[in-house]
Write a protein that binds this DNA or RNA. Structure first.
Lengths: 359, 359
DNA sequence: TTGAAAGCGCTAACAT
DNA sequence: ATGTTAGCGCTTTCAA
């Protein structure tokens, strides 16, 4: 009935369970004749070592984890485009990067998105099954992280350095947005810029706003204290925020700088509905570099994050720390790049790549 | 030194370990006063339940798995485009579909690609840590699968029905290719079609070739016994195979039907180098529907697989079987769609979507 | 080279 | 509502 265990194999092969275990963990310490016999019996019985028992006994799992928020834009999920490969979001790219890197280091990857509640938090579930894990910002209550990170390596991705003993990874949000806003102001001669911010609990979004403020200051423009409007990072939020903005008295802005691409896409839609042309009437820029940004018309100018690299770097940090548990916390800042497309008023880029990019 | 356990919490909270366990598993069976005390102590101590111990004791993990081959096209990984989000392949899409579906069912997802060797095979590693898992074709030796599937739910994705008691998922390869080839013959009036096949161990590739054969037969053309040439599914293979084909005496084919998109991309490159124009001189079609296909010029006509849905269906089958272990094996055939773009000679599709698709 | 035995941290009856 | 007590299947000294 139950799955065969070391005991079954041992008995059948006329050895002790210790020997069975050795055959799998240290094959060389077992006489080859004995080893072959054990292996043969194992196949015959359909024996598969229990990862749980192993992990319990050896205190390690060979698995790395990733926790991320339940990002998925509901709008995206629900419409007919749900099967469109372009709909790839931030967390998916990080997953890809981590998977590749983990594989190279011989680890498997456990991925889990937040949803749950109760005393059984998401982290707890993941934390109990991995040797170390990465967490995207705003996924796990700081308090939980604080506790768990005392017991196993954790790297915080794109979050605040809330907990000082964590390894930490972030992208150049402020500098990237500074440069983008400066491009709008200097290269396109725009003056009335509006910032569509994220929620205040997103360190990324806030950092981007700071970059925006710096650019305004540097250009001698009025420096806003707060984003002109805010949203929760989805397209729907972007649309709503843009509508609110346009309803306000006074002339519409010459440019909308959005805290992320999804909201920028929403802004594009709202502006179109209002009969405003992008970029002629209003320029729009995003932040992230999601694939969809280059498919829409006008194509979206944005600040591109190295999402895959984030995932890879996370694994590197994790592996490093597993090898040297007491190393002092490391923090890495990854650079971003400016992606200028149509929505800021730049000329349409050369027909994307074509074959030249392939060969 | 070691992480705190139920014993530590129990002692500190003046309860038994059973109560501590209950607080996490059946909170309602514990007096709220007691529960709060336990929880408080747990936080204080930094207690995190061990997933391994839990899994061992309860015989379930709350994790579903996915094993896939080490697909990554080395060429793609190595060049500068490695950070390009468009480079998403088959396995990644399936991963996405599974993750979403698993999340809905309350499971986490463990993903692992084959690489390893030794008695410790990839499957064994995954199998020991999950409640059930999916395997892409050609990832795991049939023999191993046979053994493991006796112990836990396994669904085979896009593979042959090698093992008859497995749940099984596949796409309409033959029908899809039949329809595509028929389109080339009937709508574009082409007669000399060449088939660029995959390796003989790929049931998908073979099924596609069968569909191609049927189309030839139905149109009254000569029916080839074998693909005109073969490759191992990468762009490089596609280039090489195409070069070989062109070097053969006789006039070049009017169309190349490729077993997958990556090879079709390679074919595009090889043809361009030879100075042949696509689709004027030679039409090219692929199979899969990878995102890159729509970015290249000419854009690639292909048969699109519902990759995300494959992942979702896999989870559904797994969950179903976990609920009803003795249900008889189920097999599902998912439909494919024709994606007509430039490389077959069809007119360039309307400017992709634009905002209309978003609202 | 192999065996014996003591855990690893938790769950799940069964008691109380 | 809470405690007692067996395991769950493996790794790992320590002996032999």
């Amino acid at each position: 009935m139950g799955a065969p265990t070391v005991y079954d194999v041992a008995k059948r092969a006329q050895v002790s369970i210790a020997t069975v275990s050795r055959v799998y963990r240290n094959p060389d310490t077992v006489r080859s004749q004995t080893r072959d016999r054990v292996l043969a019996v194992a196949r015959e019985l359909g024996y598969v070592p229990s990862g749980n028992a192993r992990g319990l006994a050896s205190r390690s799992t060979g698995v790395l984890g990733l926790c991320f928020p339940d990002y998925a834009d509901p709008e995206v999920e629900d419409d007919g485009a749900a099967d469109d490969p372009e709909q790839m979001l931030y967390a998916d790219e990080i997953t890809r990067g981590m998977e590749r890197a983990a594989r190279r280091h011989g680890y498997a990857l456990l991925i889990a998105a937040s949803l749950a509640g109760g005393p059984e938090s998401l982290v707890a579930k993941v934390a109990g099954r991995v040797d170390g894990f990465a967490v995207l910002a705003r996924t796990v209550p700081t308090e939980d992280l604080e506790i768990i990170s005392r017991r196993l390596p954790v790297v915080m991705i794109a979050g605040p350095r809330e907990i000082d003993h964590l390894d930490h990874l972030e992208v150049a949000n402020a500098d990237g947005e500074y440069e983008m806003a400066t491009h709008l102001i200097r290269d396109h001669g725009l003056r009335r810029l509006a910032f569509l911010g994220g929620t205040t609990d997103s360190p990324d979004a806030e950092a981007r706003f700071h970059g925006f403020q710096r650019a305004c200051a540097a250009a001698g423009l009025a420096v806003p204290d707060e984003p002109d409007t805010r949203g929760n990072f989805t397209q729907a939020d972007g649309r709503a925020a843009t509508d609110r903005l346009l309803q306000r008295v006074g002339q519409p802005p010459e440019a909308m700088v959005c805290a992320n691409d999804q909201m920028a896409l929403g802004a594009l839609q709202a502006l179109e509905r209002q009969g405003l042309r992008v970029p002629q009437d209003v320029a729009v820029v995003g932040f992230d570099g999601i694939p969809l940004g280059r498919m829409v018309r006008p194509s979206l100018t944005t600040v591109t994050q190295p999402m895959r690299k984030l995932g890879e770097a996370a694994v590197d940090l994790l592996v490093e720390r597993l090898g040297e548990p007491n190393r002092s916390p490391r923090s890495m800042l990854l650079p971003v790049t400016q992606t200028r497309r149509e929505s800021c008023g730049c000329p349409s880029p050369a027909p994307e790549a074509g074959l030249s990019r392939l060969g």
